[in-house]
Design a protein around this nucleic acid. Structure first.
Lengths: 142, 142
DNA sequence: GTCAGTGCAAACCCTTTGCAGAAAG
DNA sequence: CTTTCTGCAAAGGGTTTGCACTGAC
């Protein structure tokens, strides 16, 4: 996981992390990384936009989307797709799964060790696996 | 699974299936069911629209969406969410999982027996499970 | 100086909605 | 007859794009 604690979250460290992932550290990207890499969290693009721009407008919506897609492509964060039109960006890139509460909309981590897939299917000829997404959908008991 | 072979796919049988699932069998719904319940398949709303209206316009886009959501709510079909804005409707309602080929966009069934989840996580307090979605993402080998 | 990155607004895509007319029981 | 369903077109929301400007190296 590429999370940075408070002392690590200096602009210099963040720049180094970005460069290590093949991402040019522009000021906007550093701001976005600062928000995301603070702790394990699930944020929508809109939430990232809001948090980056709390004080004053630092990054535009277009750049938020470009950057989130770039980060995801470089393995800095991970996309979690919940519903049509509900994408979360997960700053925890370790192998893990998710609870999705359909009543509250809340997304919650499921540690890989507590949901064990013990048999993997044979992949179709000529393909390679790029990841497994497991979403356990839950609802509040009536 | 609620699939109907050729001899079963009479309007009367389809109407009976719909009624058994608490769905009023209007002519549009019968047409949509006829397309979906033919075989196990993964269709987008647009594909369903196209197939229902090959000969002549029988069902409008709004009704396609209304009906697909209704069918999914009544357990006649199942939604599979792949990407933001990529929803497929799966006429196979048995417990099973999916391969998603990111290169071709193809969705493929994974039989439940070949992907075994042997340990389930403890659900959060006061919640009940409504389903588990597993998507194995694959890519063509270079 | 050159090329990549950014911001803005418009464009896009898929899905949902409001409402009047049509059909089902 | 009453209620539900359908169709149309318009609205909606989240995301992407085109293009001129800005900033990084």
């Amino acid at each position: 996981m590429i999370l940075l604690n408070d002392t690590d979250r200096t602009v210099d460290t963040i720049k180094r992390v970005l460069l290590a992932h093949g991402v040019r550290p522009t000021s906007q990207r550093v701001e976005i990384a600062k928000v995301l890499l603070r702790e394990p969290q699930h944020l929508s693009a809109d939430q990232v936009l809001a948090r980056v721009n709390v004080q004053r407008p630092l990054v535009s919506k277009a750049t938020i989307y470009n950057t989130l897609n770039l980060f995801a492509g470089q393995g800095l964060i991970r996309q979690v797709i919940i519903d049509a039109g509900k994408v979360f960006y997960d700053s925890n890139t370790d192998v893990h799964h998710h609870f999705y509460n359909e009543d509250t909309g809340m997304l919650q981590d499921v540690d890989a060790s507590t949901l064990k897939i013990d048999r993997l299917p044979k992949l179709p000829e000529g393909t390679q696996e790029t990841g497994i997404d497991v979403i356990v959908r839950i609802r509040n008991k009536p």
